[in-house]
């Protein structure tokens, strides 16, 4: 193979992994929330908060890891609103999620203006340091690894951990039972509300991380509109992935690939208009919708508030 082809191939894979990462985080967040029976359409808004607070944390302490911690806490903070609204107050979960998206985007713009005294985007902050040179020295896959960032690894590890948790631990069994048949879980002494709170908060942490991976992983600043629908793509990935961690991971990679292909393919020099490349992710989405969605099944109690002691 020509070296140019190889390097194109490597950068395509690397771009796929990098672009998938935010989607993977948020899709896993969606999986854990919906597996417990709470629809979390607010992933988009939580990602925005995560992206902003990651930069803020790094800005205040010059430490990107603190930024990540900020992102997780901010994500959980916003998710807590959704949890209270949809678990305790039994609000319509779609409406709660949509309002969180609107609220979060607006709040971050406001904070951006208040704290950084700028509009549109923040200053550049300390990024997560990544030992590019070290990875480059690894034979065979070094060139690929050097193109990534820590978030990519964290996303894959989280997918594996979530899979193990859901399918091999008592907590996972309980979470799935609460999402399928909360009353059955309740009659066995499982606290449905507690499990749902835990899962929604975790989903906030995941989506917050996803936001951080955008602002601290791909760049070193927060820009308004940088999430641009990735939370919704993550929801789609969760559905394509049939509400399973590995399924969501694979679907996210497919979306990431579509994006990466759009960018990389423009370098191929094929004689087609740019619009064709731009349409690629959407065409892929439609194909996946047509091909796979019919076969997926959401958790039976997804989106239905649980009322203890209802007659």
């Amino acid at each position: 193979m020509h070296s140019i082809t190889i390097s194109l191939f490597v950068s395509l894979i690397a771009a796929t992994l990098r672009l998938s990462t935010p989607i993977i985080f948020a899709a896993l967040g969606g999986v854990i929330s919906e597996r417990s029976g709470v629809v979390n359409i607010g992933l988009e808004g939580i990602m925005i908060a995560g992206a902003f607070f990651a930069v803020l944390g790094s800005y205040l302490t010059q430490n990107a890891w603190v930024g990540i911690l900020f992102a997780i806490l901010a994500g959980m903070g916003i998710a807590l609103i959704h949890a209270v609204l949809s678990i305790n107050l039994r609000a319509d979960q779609t409406i709660s999620g949509v309002s969180i998206n609107i609220f979060s985007a607006a709040l971050m713009s406001f904070l951006l203006f208040k704290i950084f005294a700028r509009e549109g985007q923040t200053d550049g902050v300390t990024q997560l340091s990544y030992p590019k040179e070290f990875f480059k020295s690894i034979p065979f896959i070094g060139n690929l690894l050097a193109e990534l960032n820590w978030f990519v690894f964290i996303a894959f590890i989280l997918a594996i951990l979530l899979h193990l948790m859901l399918y091999y631990t008592p907590l996972g069994l309980r979470i799935r039972s609460v999402g399928e048949h909360p009353k059955a879980a309740d009659t066995l002494g499982i606290n449905v509300y507690k499990i749902r709170y835990l899962c929604v908060l975790l989903s906030g942490a995941f989506a917050g991380l996803g936001g951080a991976s955008l602002s601290l992983g791909a760049t070193n600043l927060f820009r308004e509109g940088m999430v641009s629908g990735k939370g919704f793509i993550a929801l789609a990935a969760m559905i394509f992935g049939n509400w399973k961690p590995f399924g969501a991971l694979a679907a996210s990679l497919l979306f990431g690939f579509a994006e990466a292909f759009r960018i990389v393919a423009q370098g191929f020099g094929w004689k087609v208009p740019d619009e064709v490349y731009y349409s690629f992710p959407y065409v892929l989405t439609m194909l996946m919708l047509a091909g796979f969605v019919g076969k997926t099944t959401p958790p039976a109690a997804d989106g239905i508030p649980y009322t203890k002691g209802e007659r």
């Binding site: 091999y168 631990t169 008592p170 069994l173 309980r174 039972s177 059955a184 879980a185 066995l188 002494g189 499982i190």
Partner: peptide
């Protein structure tokens, strides 16, 4: 469900 036998962290 709810009183799972365990080995380590796993069911």
């Amino acid at each position: 469900l709810g009183s799972e036998p365990k080995v380590g962290l796993k069911i």
